[in-house]
Design a protein around this nucleic acid. Structure first.
Lengths: 149, 149
DNA sequence: TATTGTTATACTCTATAACTATA
DNA sequence: TATAGTTATAGAGTATAACAATA
């Protein structure tokens, strides 16, 4: 039914905006932005990385990674070391504080997931994920299908 | 089950990012940004409006509305008229081209909704919307519940 | 000659503050 | 004195281009 499909798209946008606002403020409280937090998470997953790798993982320019690492280094969440074999490259790794921050973000994300979805019957959550997967498949297949919201 | 809740949150973020990217590029192709498109949609819903009203509707500063209206006026999608009774105020309304653009955006949004959700059984779409409503209710109740993603 | 990171520069989005005209 | 809009300015996020050191 047409009305329901439009409802679904509208609600999806509403939730997206709401989640973006909340993550933005939650991160801002500890001096982080989305890009900086993502860099921490990437380092947490991959371990020490060269800046070029980070720019590929975050899909941003190498120049921008320089700025992100500068600010995170200033906050003592990451540190730069010379690359052991390639003297052009810089190795970036989490400090102890950076590891704690990344771990805490992971914990809070888990807690938020439980707060938001934990009360629902597992079948409903599975159906929700299945619906999103369907939408994502559609978007992957026809990458220009989404109109403005 | 814990894993499923986290999956649901992750998928929600993935979809949000994907939809944001797509709307951004779709709007950029016709020289629009999210804020400019929203202004057109607000004018389409409310009819001619004073800039102060627009700044409240878009939750941005009056100064920023000036810039948005400047650019949309430059694109001949909106026009400014003197307010009939309050000579301090400016009335902003859609031009014919602006009306066409707003109408086309509405049509495309409807089409996108059908593309993305139209194939699914109505019951699944309803359950999806119900799930989002549950999450939105939770976010409204405990506005700091979402952790970083 | 190609690659890593950086300095220099610029553009977009958005905000605050000070100001003008009007109420 | 308060309100509507604008000029001036600023800051965050992100990009491109040119350049140095190294491969």
């Amino acid at each position: 039914m047409a009305t329901t499909a439009l409802d679904a798209l509208d609600k999806t946008f509403t939730l997206a905006v709401r989640l973006a606002e909340l993550t933005h403020t939650a991160l801002a409280e500890r001096g982080l932005t989305t890009a900086r937090a993502e860099l921490l998470l990437v380092l947490n997953q991959r371990g020490p990385s060269v800046q070029r790798e980070l720019s590929q993982a975050l899909r941003c320019t190498p120049r921008y990674v320089t700025g992100l690492v500068d600010s995170l280094e200033g906050a003592q969440l990451v540190s730069r070391q010379p690359h052991p074999t390639d003297r052009r490259a810089t190795l970036v790794s989490l400090t102890q504080a950076g590891k704690r921050t990344a771990a805490r973000m992971a914990t809070e994300r888990q807690q938020a997931a439980l707060d938001l979805f934990g009360e629902l019957p597992p079948a409903q959550v599975s159906a929700y994920v299945a619906t999103i997967n369907h939408v994502l498949d559609h978007l992957a297949g026809a990458p220009d299908a989404a109109g403005p919201g």
